[in-house]
Computed example of a mutant assay.
Amino acid sequence: MMNCETFYKFCLSLPGVTEKMPFQAFPAARSILAFYIGNKIFCYFDIDKFDVCTVKCTPNEIDELKEWYHAVDAPYNMNRKYWISIRFNDDMADKEIKYWVRKSYDIIRHSLK
Rank of each mutant, 00 (worst) to 15 (best):
Glu64Val: 11
Ser104Val: 03
Leu33Lys: 10
Lys66Cys: 02
Thr58Tyr: 14
Met21His: 03
Phe23Asp: 05
Lys49Asp: 14
Asn39His: 11
Arg80Lys: 15
Gly38Lys: 02
Glu61Gly: 02
Ile84Pro: 00
Val101Thr: 09
Phe7Leu: 14
Glu61Thr: 08
Ser104Tyr: 08
Ile97Asn: 01
Met21Leu: 09
Leu65Met: 15
Asp46Lys: 02
Glu5Lys: 13
Leu65Ser: 06
Glu19Cys: 11
Ala25Arg: 14
Ile41Pro: 02
Ile47Val: 15
Lys49Leu: 15
Arg109Thr: 00
Trp83Glu: 08
Asp73His: 00
Pro22Ser: 00
Pro22Asp: 01
Glu67Ile: 05
Lys49Pro: 03
Ala74Asp: 11
Phe35Gly: 07
Arg30Gln: 15
Met2Arg: 09
Val101Glu: 01
Asn77Ser: 08
Ile37Val: 14
Ile84Leu: 04
Ser31Gly: 04
Pro75Tyr: 03
Ile84Asp: 07
Leu12Ala: 04
Asp48Arg: 13
Lys113Trp: 02
Asn39Cys: 03
Arg87Cys: 06
Leu65Asp: 08
Thr6Gly: 04
Lys40Gln: 12
Phe45Cys: 11
Phe88Ile: 01
Tyr69Val: 05
Pro75Gly: 08
Trp83Ala: 01
Ile62Gln: 08
Leu12Gln: 08
Tyr44Ser: 09
Val72Cys: 03
Pro59Gly: 10
Met92Gln: 04
Phe88His: 00
Lys40His: 11
Ile86Asp: 03
Asp73Met: 10
Thr58Lys: 14
Cys57Thr: 11
Phe23Arg: 07
Tyr99Met: 08
Ser85Gly: 14
Phe42Gly: 07
Gly16Glu: 07
Met1His: 11
Glu61Ala: 12
Asp94His: 00
Asn77Ile: 01
Ala93Gly: 02
Tyr105Ile: 03
Lys9Cys: 05
Ile62Ala: 05
Ser13Met: 10
His110Ser: 14
Lys49Gln: 15
Lys103Asp: 09
Tyr8Glu: 11
Trp100Lys: 06
Ile108Asn: 06
Ile107Ser: 10
Ala25Met: 05
